[in-house]
Design a protein around this nucleic acid. Structure first.
Lengths: 148, 148
DNA sequence: TGTGGACCCTACCCCCATGGGAGGGTCAAG
DNA sequence: CTTGACCCTCCCATGGGGGTAGGGTCCACA
């Protein structure tokens, strides 16, 4: 653990930024920056003498990487793998492609589950009068009575 | 709170079943049956003298209702609303239809989010050679470099 | 020099729906 | 009376966050 202890002003002169600036530079919340460090995605985070976290440009790159990957729906575990490949100059693009392809499969599985829910629901909604009477094929379905 | 205290055998003679039978009859896990009671979806659960929970056929119906609704992706709060409508003979089918329609909207929003993720990912995967070389448009995208 | 406000720290609790397990009591068959 | 299958309550974990409390620190301005 390269824990560099610096005074605040001194750290800034050396190109470090504090967590507030890291938030603004990356778009990742203060909470989540600390969380990503805790689960090991951000390494070698230095501290000032007053225990303030100090980040480098490389950390900000990593945070933006994580954020983009989250936007694409990758889990933290998948992101952990992607980050280590990103940082490994001897990686094969095949290993990255494999993770992405697997993730596409997961997404498509999820999409088809949700799609089958909506298909069923749309059919039930179509059959429901939607008026002031109590009779309702939606409730009938939920209650296990097969609709006509 | 109609808390009927019975001996085990006596309860069974009166048509009650214990949580193990309720699990088998409903397909809902023991854990979740207790949880649904805790959050107020299962009411008037009786107990034996030894503090064992006792369920009626009506409880089993309710559990199956919840299970079916979960299968269709409804949240517990939505299920709470649906259950109270189900149990209200003076409900309007319109109120049920409204909940279902709202849920369809939520599902479709989720589906289009996932769909846009897969679209992006598929394009990246398509552009990735997937060989032993390190160069990779997927990582380039995550790192914020715009792909060609 | 002091003070105020903006920032930072740790440590806790919450969401949702669900599973796991510890530690102990109860039932019924053999 | 033992054995094993049940049941009970209570606590902890998941993932990807949000909130808040109670404290320390930095800096600019009076």
């Amino acid at each position: 653990m390269k824990r560099v202890l610096l005074q605040h002003a001194e750290a800034f002169e050396n190109g470090f930024i504090d967590i507030g600036l890291a938030t603004k530079a990356s778009g990742v919340s203060v909470k989540m920056i600390r969380h990503y460090e805790e689960i090991g995605l951000l390494k070698n985070v230095a501290r000032t003498a007053a225990n303030y976290r100090l980040y480098t440009e490389q950390h900000v790159h990593t945070l933006r990487f994580i954020k983009r990957a989250r936007t694409l729906g990758f889990s933290m575990e998948e992101i952990r793998e992607l980050l280590s490949l990103w940082q490994d100059r001897r990686r094969s693009s095949a290993s990255v492609k494999k993770i992405a392809a697997r993730h596409i499969d997961e997404l498509q599985t999820k999409i088809s589950e949700l799609q089958s829910m909506t298909n069923t629901l749309k059919e039930l909604v179509r059959c429901c009068a939607g008026d002031s009477r109590p009779n309702c094929p939606i409730l009938d379905d939920l209650a296990g009575r097969k609709a006509a």
